[in-house]
Design a protein around this nucleic acid. Sequence first.
DNA 1: CTGCTATCGTTGGCGCCGCCAACGAATTCG
DNA 2: CGAATTCGTTGGCGGCGCCAACGATAGCAG
Lengths: 157, 157
Amino acid sequence: METAPARLRGKASWLIGRITLYAHRRIADALAGEGAHGHHFSILAALVEFGPASQITIGQRCLIDRSDMAEMVTELVDQGLVVRATDPGDRRRNVITLTPAGRRRFERLDAVLEQAQRELFAPLTPAEHHQLVNLLGRVFDHQLSTVGAEPVRSRGR
Amino acid sequence: METAPARLRGKASWLIGRITLYAHRRIADALAGEGAHGHHFSILAALVEFGPASQITIGQRCLIDRSDMAEMVTELVDQGLVVRATDPGDRRRNVITLTPAGRRRFERLDAVLEQAQRELFAPLTPAEHHQLVNLLGRVFDHQLSTVGAEPVRSRGR
DNA sequence: CTGCTATCGTTGGCGCCGCCAACGAATTCG
DNA sequence: CGAATTCGTTGGCGGCGCCAACGATAGCAG
């Protein structure tokens, strides 16, 4: 009565979509409890790992559209987690720099997200969880390499 | 320069979200080429596997909201893939029944989707692909069992 | 039989998300 | 210098999942 059709449940694309839907809500809730948005963590992570960068560069690394970046960075600035300054070397660019508070926030959000991972993927053993990340990572890399090679037929407008 | 931050790339929730985004576009394109919507396949699959049913029942099995069901069924009726008739035993219900054309369409769409799976998860061996479905299926079941047990904190409106 | 309540289908609309378009400012190149 | 390009910003669009409300029908308690 509540079992999904086998031909549907057996498709990885359907499973992945369903899981993403629920996971996104869970994570959005967890981050909202900290007053943060999902992209905030991505941006902070890029700054922690690669140092100060322009909005475009951060966007490329985290796959965030530049129009969304503008809004997200403004929010981070308002919270004192990040500093936005025009690059003196190329005044078209904004150099985004992490503040000490921003780094602390990153560590906090990272802990929250790691906990969420554990809950979301609770039925998997640590080894299985690790392998899932491995499999997904390879699929993701495959997407990155094939995207752009073909005309983007979609985006119907 | 184009590598994602490790703390981001290492999170299954992020990978799964990224893959879903791309996969949904690919599949939407493939189905659009057949003149079909993603939910069409889900509904047809439920009818093939479980026989005629009310819109509510189909929605429960495929996790489709009833307001969306109404629209999707109308589209399927317009294409002659399905018949909508009020249930004589309970005139609140619509009994949805598969037509021969509907069954043929299902087989066709299933082939298209299976092909899409192969392309999307190309870097995985068949055994790995199978295991991915296994891992995701267990995570999905875990979601089903835990959802509803807690108050839906999200849905912020 | 008569209300009260619940269920189903339908319509309309909301919020989030990813993305595109267009513009101004600044830079680079011919 | 002029043309083309890049970055940031604003505004808006389309798709998706979902909720709210209504009419019609059905089940239930008194």
